[in-house]
Every structure is written in C-alpha cells, then in structure tokens.
Design a protein around this nucleic acid. Structure first.
Lengths: 232, 232
DNA sequence: AAGTGGTCTAGACCACGTC
DNA sequence: ACGTGGTCTAGACCACTTT
C-alpha cells in the first residue's frame, strides 16, 4: 500500500473536508493533531497548519491550544460581504451610476447620531444625496461627517464627487461597524425614491472611526427590490 | 541609528497599516516587494508574506504576481457575518428561544423554489415554523427540504428539534448562497409575527448544496426591529 | 506538567503575468 | 524573459490551556 501524498495546503484542505463530509470525522469530534496529520499526509506541519487555519477561519473547525482541533459542532458558517463604493456596485450590475446632492448643511445632529458618533453637541456636516442606476432611483444616502477631523471637506464640491469617494481616498479609517435592517420608508425617502410611504426598504447603517476619532455615520436606504447576496 | 525590528507578522501588519494611514504609501501606489520589506524589517520573507496576505484578504492591498503589491485604490472593505443557529442567536441576546412547527407537508414546490433548487416537479418537504425569543415572535421560517437526498428526515419529529439543527448535524453542505433583503409582510407572516400586513421585514434567503445535490432552501422573515450587525 | 496550536527562520522551487 | 508573489520544507521556540 502506497501512502497518498498531499503536497499542497489546498489538497490537504480538500482531504480534510472530504473526511468531514463522509463523517469519518463527525461534528464535535477531535481530529488528529498537526504533527500526526503531517506524517500521514507526507508533508510539513506548516502545510497542515495552513489548511486547518483556513478551515478554522471559515468556521468549519474549532481550534484551541492544547485542546486540539475539533469539527465544529454548530458550523457557524461565515459569509463575507464586500462593501464597494455605490458607483462600483451600480457599474457591476451593468448600469450607469448617477448622483445628485440634495442637501448640505452644518448643524448639530439629532440625539441618535450624537450617541452613535460620540461627538456631543458639536455641529457636523450633514449631507443628503440620491444615487441612481440608469436614471432610476437606487439609494438615498443620509450622511453625517465629523468635520472637525476632516476640515478639508468644507472646500470640496460634493455635487461632482460623492462624499464617500472623497473620504475613502483622503480619510482612511481604522475600524467601524455596519448594520443591516429593514425599515418602512419615511415620507422623505418615499419621495426621493419615488415609492409609497411605508414601503419596505433595505437599510445599511455604517459608522467609521480613525483611531478614537469618529469620521462619519451614514445610512443608505435602498430602493425596493435590492438584494445583498454572497456565497457561503 | 538602530533599525527597528518587527518580529511578528502582526507587528509587520501594524507597521504597513501605519504607513498607509500616514499616506507614506498612498492609495494606488506600489509598495516594496516582500524580499526588500523582509530585509528592512529584519524578519523572514514568510513573515512579511503572512502580514501582506492577510491585508490582501481584507481588501486593503492588491497583490499580483510580477506586478507587485499596491495599496488598494478603492478599499473594498469586507464585512464578515456569522450565520449562527437561530437558537444560538437568541441565546446570545440573553433571551430564551422557543420554537413551534406550524405546518408540515410533502408537496410540489412553487416555481421560484423549483428554479432555485433545480429539483423540477419532484415533491419536497415543506416546513413552516415560528421561532420566539422570550415568548415574543422572533422569526418565521419557511423551508423546503430536498427529501430525496435526506430521506431520514421523514422520520424526525420536527416539533422538538428544528429542521436546521437536524440538518447541520446530519447533512453537511459543501456550499450555498445567502441573500438579504427587505420585504413587506404578507398576510400569513403578519399573523404569525403579530404585526400589521405590509410591515417592513428583514428577510434572509439561504440555499445550500452538497456537491451537485440541492439540500434545502429557507426563507427567514424577522420580526420588525431586527438588526444584523458586524465590525468592519 | 505536558501537549497542543501559533509562529518564525532560512532556504528553495515554482507558477504566473507583466515587461 | 524574468521578477514577483505563492508555497513547501525542516527545524525550532513559544504561548496557552487543559489535565
């Protein structure tokens, strides 16, 4: 009997997945340690490590020092979503992106925005814009910008360049959070999107920071029919 | 002048991020190759590779053989969502999960489901269930199961164990897709969730396969107020 | 206390895509 | 053609956590 060899980390990963699927290694069970698998597969331990680490990142395996590696009992599959620029998103659908700045002001934000950004009662730059796809309303953007950390933005003509385009190029963020939900269209949203009040809208709320300094909070309300999709 | 050393791939990553943030390496620009960075950082090339590969996976860098590594022009940030069991999701909120099977039948699915699963006119197992959190309606689950590939499911008492719990433990899938959208509540959904018809619902559609064989298609319609959140 | 995964090193070969 | 990232190896040390 000739032992099969798995030279690449991908082939090792495939073999591990195969054993999980045929239930040779059922959910919750421990699998051999890296050193043993490397011997069995005829490859270096680093190669096994690379394969198993990727599976752990995908939620298929649970790995803990000393405790070893187990097949995840409840495979918490992870879906990865790309967050592109809206213009790129529209272009990827084969449509033409349009953009219109609807309102711009510097005012003290309402309490929910203050709480989210932690900027207190300091005035922020408030922007309201409509994105279109082949001239049809696509998404309403309601954005607050912490102008104290990006004062250059005061001098930008935001009717030709979107706020997000300027920000990604000029004010990189270190971290942020993003939330997805469904909301009934407000009167203003309904008007801008050309839909009835109360229609179900897919809403994305995103807040970003640069270190401890909040940069921007944006709410995107998509026209009905929008789907955010990805593979798992 | 003593050259600083970056022994770990994390410290290398931090240093690279720092240079990007201070715009020493502005968006779109090429950065030195791995070998040069390894020399500068006083570490092995594999360490630099690990750091840069992780940044490329996060969408911060663009890497191509021979062309080298560049700072992404449009940082397509990636958000990773965990897809837990509903019972785990409810428990994570500190609430008690409840579950009631509302309907069960074996029938030929409607055209959209047939198209999504590709099972033709073969009858499938159809399940309708309500999940609750602290006794309040949480999500309506509308599921189709390809009973031809998991015939054991016929004999499972799905009033005590959710279909998904049984499936993740007994019918692992190789791949699938997931989509998020907003929908107006149908009459049935409104009744089960105790909300007005037409209310905005957050909807998750998930379809999974084992190799070429479709396993299940499920639609989860969450009660108003649900937010799906993650860090970026 | 001991065994596991996590990581680093130094070297090597190779696939690929741009030049 | 050739320089880049992609990967593998063999060995080593270490951090962590469970026993």
């Amino acid at each position: 009997m000739i032992a099969p060899h798995f030279n690449t980390w991908q082939s090792v990963q495939d073999e591990v997945l195969r054993r999980i699927h045929i239930r040779a290694w059922p959910p919750g069970s421990a699998i051999p340690n890296e050193a043993d698998l490397a011997t069995e597969f005829g490859c270096a331990r680093a190669t096994v490590n690379r394969a198993l680490r990727a599976l752990a990142e995908a939620g298929i395996l649970d790995r803990r020092r000393r405790a070893g590696t187990r097949v995840a009992l409840h495979p918490v599959r992870k879906a990865t979503l790309s967050i592109p620029l809206i213009s790129a998103e529209v272009a990827a659908r084969g449509q033409r992106h349009g953009y219109r700045l609807l309102a711009r002001s510097e005012v003290c934000p309402p309490a929910p925005v203050r709480a989210q950004l932690g900027t207190g009662t300091r005035p922020l730059l408030h922007l309201l814009a409509l994105h279109t796809a082949d001239a049809a309303p696509y998404v309403v953007e309601d954005r607050w910008v912490n102008i104290a950390v990006v004062p250059e933005m005061r001098d930008i003509d935001l009717s030709v360049q979107t706020a997000n385009e300027w920000l990604v190029a000029n004010a990189p963020f270190t971290h942020g959070d993003i939330a997805f939900s469904a909301h009934a269209a407000s009167a203003a949203e309904a008007q801008h999107l050309g839909i009835p009040i109360g229609a179900a809208l897919f809403v994305v709320d995103r807040t970003t920071w640069n270190g401890a300094a909040p940069i921007t909070a944006v709410r995107l309300a998509y026209a009905p029919g929008y789907r955010m999709q990805t593979a798992i």
